[in-house]
Design a protein around this nucleic acid. Sequence first.
DNA 1: AAAAAAATTGAAAACGTTTTAATTTATTCG
DNA 2: CGAATAAATTAAAACGTTTTCAATTTTTTT
Lengths: 337, 337
Amino acid sequence: MKLKDFAKHLDLSPTTVSRALSGYPEVRESTRKRVADEALRLGYRPNINAVRLVTGRVGAIGILMGRGREVHFAEFLSGMGERLGGEDIDILVTPIAEHDAREEIQLYSRLVESRRVDAIIVNGPRPDDERISLLHRLGMPFLVHGRSETAVPYAWLDIDNEGAIKRATSHLLDLGHRRIAMINGRPGVTFSVHRDKGYRDALVERGLPFDPKLVAHGNFTDEVGFRFARSFLEQSPRPTAFVAGSMMTALGVYRAARSLDLIVGKDISVIAHDDVFPYLNADNMAPSLSTTRSSMRAAGTRSAELVLQLLSGKPPAEIHELWPVELILRESTGLAP
Amino acid sequence: MKLKDFAKHLDLSPTTVSRALSGYPEVRESTRKRVADEALRLGYRPNINAVRLVTGRVGAIGILMGRGREVHFAEFLSGMGERLGGEDIDILVTPIAEHDAREEIQLYSRLVESRRVDAIIVNGPRPDDERISLLHRLGMPFLVHGRSETAVPYAWLDIDNEGAIKRATSHLLDLGHRRIAMINGRPGVTFSVHRDKGYRDALVERGLPFDPKLVAHGNFTDEVGFRFARSFLEQSPRPTAFVAGSMMTALGVYRAARSLDLIVGKDISVIAHDDVFPYLNADNMAPSLSTTRSSMRAAGTRSAELVLQLLSGKPPAEIHELWPVELILRESTGLAP
DNA sequence: AAAAAAATTGAAAACGTTTTAATTTATTCG
DNA sequence: CGAATAAATTAAAACGTTTTCAATTTTTTT
């Protein structure tokens, strides 16, 4: 049914009906009620494409899904959905191979030019991220999940990676550990850089040397955790503690320890960053895992909220959120042997 | 820039320009070339909302992301993107809590009624899935990834879960195993039912009894694999082989075996189903894992293709694909002790 | 009770395309 | 060469809303 028919049925003008449904103030309360009730009864819903054409708004937020971080991505998405449930705003996902940066930039350009989204969420930013200047130049509203060092002003939401890892490392130092290995995330992305810095600063603060042989970078997978942990543990003297970039990495570290008959929490200590996945619980691991914790899901929810603020006109420069990270101690950390 | 301006610039009518860009046959080749070149040069792109309004097509495929299977979901999505890259079709993701079936149905209804998608992909179907009859009733084109037992005709793409698990189980029987445990997926969904049947049939075929104490159901997580494997291994006589529903489950089984000082491939054998995640490789595991393999990503790509066929008018009843599953033997399977 | 003000409703013009039906231009053929 | 046919182009009518501006009705004020 079209607006015209529906309005005729109500003996009102399309104008009034449209206003009643959109909640404009200048329509009488009794009229609004009548329209709303009847719309529900007859199942009238405005044609979304007509609405979009005339308002110029698309009603969608775009987000690109790169490969290798699908797990985090899905959790973030899930959080976004929580905030966007009531709104008439969709999430548009564009999967992307992300092999080279050039192709990535092209995909962002095309997404903007195709005018299919009102705003974009940029994830996994790098310090010199081209995407940020691109979107700024093209005038597309966007929120960065993470941070960059680009000169242009931009809205962002990030967790305090540096502080979190610094605290974790300091705690291990307090426990007497002196050789602490770090299995960080992909090289080049800002959060890895921040975590490296947190790790380094903790060492420097105690006047301890930084040993590049104890730092590795890679995707957040069980496999990467296992391989690097094995190779670190084969050094001598071997590290007595690990800072792991993710829960998956920690699983790999646990596996490596077991494969060498080392007991986690005694022979080696492990602290990992936990993005809080519903299906991988630090408490349930054996031994339970000490973590720096910050919910990826919550970040998604909040990001959706911030994008809505952006869309309602709030200047990007005023949207900066740095979330603190909890340090939760469990059985995987103990005094240095 | 609007079509009208662009057409004026070319000294053509909007009609001709529109047709030239959409590849209609009745426009002269030289004209088409000129229009295409100039469009590229001036950066003209039709306003997508206007196109959608007039064609009645939205240019989007909807898919709901339930919780607990995010990993598989993301991989499937990634595959869809591969096929949809060139097309002007978006993927619309609606995250969903999926707590109760009633709410789930409502979300599907709303997605249909809001007319935001041209087709829907239904995932994780159950034998008596209400969503299928709903979408059929509402006249929304849809493809089911998996199968159901609903009476209405519907398009589907599924892998041969029953055959795969039957083969895996038979192989373990060939190796002399007699107590084979099965850690299957969530109860109630069709693929779990099919896998149960494959497992059962393999036993029956050899005249062996089916022991419900050796079968468990749960999400595809490391944790579930670990817990069930532990509890099975504490039975006596304990099982000598495991059929695991996923790679994550297998990780848990490996962990459980290690925690009891059992050697995988010798004391116990393990075969798992591998959906082929880029970050979790059966070959790299220690010991390497025997698997039944079928790419989730490929399923996504093919599903996108099938949806396109659906949209171009192919009857749903003609779209049925059952994919065979490979059985790949590696080190995790061996003769029964 | 009339005038003024406020509240409510409506007519008509966008929004930017695609597509139908009509028109013009080019080609073929007797 | 002219009629018939084919090919290429265009004018105008959708598509279904929102929104501006104007008109009407209702309420308040004097």
